[in-house]
């Protein structure tokens, strides 16, 4: 099947999803990110790879951390970064997504970083670029609807590899609202491709999608049981808006069952790491003693995220 992320030589030309990417490409991104980690520790935190290139940040949905880390990553590659304020732009005046893209192409864009509330929007843009013969312009998905958030998935993989070295011996638990989480989906595909033998999903039935067994994921509704002997615990943010719906009774009730407390974390291996894509809701999905504790690697995740985004942008821009 045609994979819109790869060019005819099988090289990564857009990053749209971790799904369908071969292990070799995932590993290439992680290895390249390791080299960029070194760049970020220098006095001059810049390399000339994307000098003269224009990176457009198109965030149709709010985000501070992801947009900022993409901006830092692009600047450390020496690219020019243009942040579009979509809420005040012509999209708000009724321009279609693809008309916006055509206009930005006319401004000599080289790379689009796209976040959109609709699943598939970055695919639509990538297909459109191909159709108008602009295969020299690249798309990086910064989160689309409930579908995918591949750079978050990759930075999670980088974090796991950094602390645990070998994927093939690990038990990884993802806890929380997996149904609405594009991070969880991107993590699950990447973990499976990189050879993690046991991926667990922990959460209430209302927040776990039905397709998990098909992906080989083990489902747990009991937090203590699900965390037992895990090497990695990935907490997900509980989106407040879910609370108002029928999916959950209350934040307090949720925390009692699925909040990561020191007591709960003790079920995992003593050297287990705790990850969270941010922003955290302390006292809703994670206890402050865990979030600030020695097993949390939540801030290193942010630092690794810059190097991973540098790797992704420089790889796609070169293919």
């Amino acid at each position: 099947m045609h994979n819109p992320q790869l060019n005819n030589k099988g090289e990564l030309t857009h990053l749209l999803s971790t799904e369908g990417l071969p292990a070799a490409i995932l590993t290439q991104i992680l290895d390249t990110a390791a080299s960029f980690m070194e760049v970020s520790s220098r006095d001059v935190k810049k390399v000339p790879l994307l000098r003269g290139k224009s990176v457009f940040n198109l965030f149709f949905e709010n985000s501070t951390r992801t947009r900022t880390t993409f901006e830092i990553a692009a600047k450390r590659l020496s690219a020019d970064v243009i942040n579009l304020d979509i809420t005040r732009s012509s999209t708000a005046k009724g321009e279609t997504l693809l008309d916006t893209i055509d206009n930005l192409c006319a401004m000599d864009a080289n790379l689009f970083v796209v976040r959109h509330a609709s699943s598939g929007a970055p695919y639509l843009i990538a297909e459109h670029l191909h159709k108008i013969g602009r295969d020299d312009i690249h798309v990086v998905n910064a989160g689309d609807g409930r579908h995918a958030h591949p750079t978050q998935g990759l930075l999670d993989m980088y974090t796991i590899r950094h602390y645990k070295k070998d994927f093939t011996q690990l038990r990884v638990a993802i806890v929380g609202d997996i149904l609405h989480s594009r991070v969880a989906r991107s993590d699950i595909h990447a973990l499976t491709t990189l050879g993690v033998p046991e991926v667990r999903a922990i959460g209430p039935e209302t927040l776990l999608p039905k397709y998990l067994d098909k992906l080989g994921v083990h489902v747990y509704h009991d937090m203590a049981e699900g965390l037992r002997d895990c090497d990695v615990v990935i907490m997900l943010r509980l989106q407040n808006e879910r609370m108002n719906g029928a999916l959950l009774p209350s934040a307090g009730e949720y925390f009692r069952h699925y909040g990561l407390t020191p007591h709960m974390l003790a079920m995992a291996k003593p050297d287990a790491i705790v990850m969270h894509p941010g922003p955290m809701n302390r006292g809703v999905e994670i206890h402050s003693a865990v979030a600030d504790g020695p097993q949390a690697v939540i801030l290193p995740q942010v630092t690794f995220g810059i190097a991973v985004r540098m790797a992704v942008m420089s790889i796609v821009a070169g293919n």
Partner: peptide, 23 residues
């Protein structure tokens, strides 16, 4: 030194698939 990030043929050849950290 791994010169992958400083090469002048990036536009033609892209990023070398196996770059190692400079130290």
């Amino acid at each position: 030194i791994d010169v992958s990030f400083y090469r002048d043929d990036f536009a033609e050849k892209g990023l070398h698939p196996q770059c190692r950290p400079t130290t």
